[in-house]
Amino acid sequence: MLILECPYCGVTGEETEFHGGGEAHLTRHGPGSSDDDFENYLFLRENPRGVHFERWRHVNGCGKWFHAARDTATLEVFGTYSAQTTEPPQDIKDAITAKRPGWSWREFK
């Protein structure tokens, strides 16, 4: 059972209180984009065994979307943070580095 903390209302809850929204920090592409960009945005995923950034929604709570950094191989949650960002904040990156030195994910390190 995953335990997540909603960065908006501060509630710590079990995963049944939340709903997973898949990979985070995708760059959205609209009409006129190349086939490559569309394919990347709509279908291709990192799906790593290890550090993963993802979207969650506090469905049975405040209803807000937020981000989480988690390890898919151990289910350890490194931290949750605001949805209003295109990149994990430095304190989250530091928390991951403390536990998984040398991690990288897409363009983030």
Binding site: G22, E23, N40, F43, L44, R45, E46, N47, P48, R49, T72
Partner: peptide
Amino acid sequence: GHSGVMAEKAGFRLPIES
């Protein structure tokens, strides 16, 4: 389930989530 991990080693990505 490990297709994404292997594809990454081969240098491409797949439309797969595990």
